[in-house]
Amino acid sequence: MPIITDTGFAPDDDLALLCLDDLTDSTGQAALDLPLDADPDAVPRHFDRLTHIVIPFPGFADGRGFSLARRLRALGYRGRLRAAGHLIPDQYAFARFCGFDEVQISSEQADRQAESQWTIHTRALPPFLRRRTGGWTQPAT
């Protein structure tokens, strides 16, 4: 299950994931698996101990993860944000804009959709955001 960043494919890092209920005030550094129906307002008190938040994409047409990511960034989360599951290369730039740092996909998909399809930087980028900043700046990290 490769991980994709702006520099390309990297092997799975086998993150050990905890869920929200596992986190206590004495938990050390941790990676959180945050389901789509979780209440994002319950997360900020743990922000400091979170190295990663992983948001699932059950199917690429389910865009909830994009809003959840934006919400977490707006709440002040500065750790890494990962989108995991079924996203397609055409959504990579969208994911970055919404605050994700990386995407994790299945090996089957990685076989079908080569690294170059994910990293091309010729995708059409939202003109509204470009116009405002004079260039492609990303809100994430």
Binding site: F60, A61, D62, G63, F66, S67, R70, Q91, A93, F94, A95, F97, C98, A124, L125, P126, P127, F128, L129, R131
Partner: peptide, 13 residues
């Protein structure tokens, strides 16, 4: 139109 075009968050509602 400008705001909604390719809005990264709202392309898969």
């Amino acid at each position: 139109r400008q705001w909604s075009t390719a809005h990264p968050e709202f392309a898969f509602l």
